[in-house]
Amino acid sequence: MITYFLCLVLFSIGLFCAVRKRNIIKIIIGIGIMEYAVNLFFILIGYRAQGRSPILARDQAITNIVDPLPQAVALTAIVIGLAVMLMLVALAIRIYERYGTFDITKINRLKE
């Protein structure tokens, strides 16, 4: 139970960073930390104590392997997370080109 809680602490650190920081790069880092925590929570949900990797063997049964379904889901989520981070960094570089700063409180000129 303490493991689930530590994973949620990691999620709240990412949430704090995304909500409270002003630098766009710090916000991207916070979103990344949240994403890591959610992926890890999927795997923690499917873990079986003293379980084996989900690879077929002769004596492999459903009672002695970890749950393979959350792993298949998280595999997709990791790649999509990379795509999201790429998109965010491209937007941040574009904002820096236009405004000369990463500070979100200074980006208030809507048009010029």
Binding site: N39, I43, Y47, G51, S53, P54, Q71, A74, I78, V79
Partner: peptide
């Protein structure tokens, strides 16, 4: 956590 595919990825 016994997820080698995820570790590599």
């Amino acid at each position: 956590m016994k997820a080698p595919d995820l570790a590599i990825m």
